[in-house]
């Protein structure tokens, strides 16, 4: 019960005192100090972080589904073990992140309930289907690659528990990314059929992966305050560009074609990409991606089917405590 030990409620002393605290808080952020769970923080900072960390946790958990879709069909025993271990890592990230979110005063149960009720978001990318084995390679290479791009700066996030969680998560994600790339490399060095499978996967995932960085800077809602609070250190467009510049040579090495005929390299070496279809992004966020309904249904089913198990565990724990108390009283 870690959260019980924390001072999570905002004090009621508004006004001048709050303004002084807020200034002090901002000074600490500006000095690159870490904010810890028991420290005073503005309610909006707490709310923003709770939203961001829990969305991140939900993404890890929902993200188990598209990859889990291939655990039972992985083509070799080595691939099967590696994929299972990878999906297990994602689950671990989810748990770790829920724990980080709990330090801000909201329980895992409440956070999960909000997700299952459709009130909390998870990453749009997991609403796309994994149709072939090459999708598993592509997710490791590109989806985890994009996640790393987003998460490396979060290792320096002003909120201590989140920053520390990200250090471990990033290490594992880097391993996943190399694993995914190695799957792609094997396919691209394989038969024509395998290479076509790899290209098809890249064609389907490329644009949704670029959308993972979020809307263009001009339309992003949260960036200003998040930047001030050093939760976010790079803009969506900056991270997207970094990712593309890193990825294009990797695709070239594989002998795959990025599905953007309009892509050109500018004088500074940056790869300039074509317009992203933000209508598709909005549709997916609105619940109309190819797998939104399936993902939510799967998570709700796991939750509902598991209710009697969780009740049994709680009931047994209560009985045991009761017996121990009775024994101690004898």
């Amino acid at each position: 019960m870690y959260t019980q030990a924390l001072n999570t409620a905002e004090t009621d002393d508004r006004g001048l005192e709050d303004a002084a605290k807020a200034a002090q808080f901002q000074a600490r952020i500006d000095a690159e100090e870490r904010i810890e769970p028991n420290d005073w923080m503005p309610a909006a900072y707490r709310k923003t972080l709770t939203r961001q960390i829990s969305q991140h946790a939900h993404s890890e958990i929902v993200g188990m589904l598209p990859e889990g879709n291939w655990i039972t069909r992985a083509p070799t025993l080595r691939r099967k073990a590696a994929l299972l271990a990878k999906v297990q890592d994602e689950c671990g990230h989810g748990l770790y992140l829920y724990a980080a979110a709990e330090t801000l005063g909201t329980s895992r149960e409440e956070l999960v309930d909000a997700m299952l009720a459709g009130k909390a978001k998870y990453s749009s990318i997991f609403n796309y289907p994994t149709l072939t084995w090459a999708d598993i390679g592509t997710i490791g290479w590109l989806v985890d690659g994009a996640a790393i791009m987003n998460q490396i700066p979060l290792c320096r996030c002003s909120y201590g528990p989140y920053a520390r969680a990200m250090i471990r998560v990033c290490k594992e994600e880097s391993f996943h990314q190399r694993q995914g790339y190695e799957i792609m490399l094997t396919l691209c060095r394989g038969s024509d059929e395998q290479k076509a499978m790899a290209q098809d996967a890249l064609n389907r995932w490329w644009w949704p992966v670029l959308m993972m960085f979020g809307p263009p800077d001009a339309t992003s809602q949260h960036s200003d305050t998040s930047t001030k609070w050093k939760i976010k250190r790079f803009s969506n467009d900056e991270l997207r560009q970094k990712f593309i510049d890193a990825t294009v040579p990797q695709a070239q090495y594989l002998g795959l074609t990025i599905p953007d005929p309009g892509m050109t390299q500018d004088a500074e070496g940056h790869w300039r990409y074509s317009e992203i279809d933000w209508t598709e992004f909005k549709q997916v966020l609105a619940g109309n991606g190819p797998c939104n309904r399936d993902r939510m249904a799967a998570r709700r089913k796991a939750h509902d089917d598991g209710a009697w198990v969780r009740e049994a565990a709680a009931s047994y724990a209560a009985k045991r405590t009761q017996r121990q108390t009775a024994q101690a009283a004898e």
């Binding site: 889990g68 689950c91 796991a302 089917d305 598991g306 198990v309």
Partner: peptide, 13 residues
């Protein structure tokens, strides 16, 4: 492994 992603609680996943 068929349980992965579908267990009653994350700890059991």
């Amino acid at each position: 492994s068929e349980w992965c992603g579908h267990a009653p609680m994350l700890e059991e996943d």
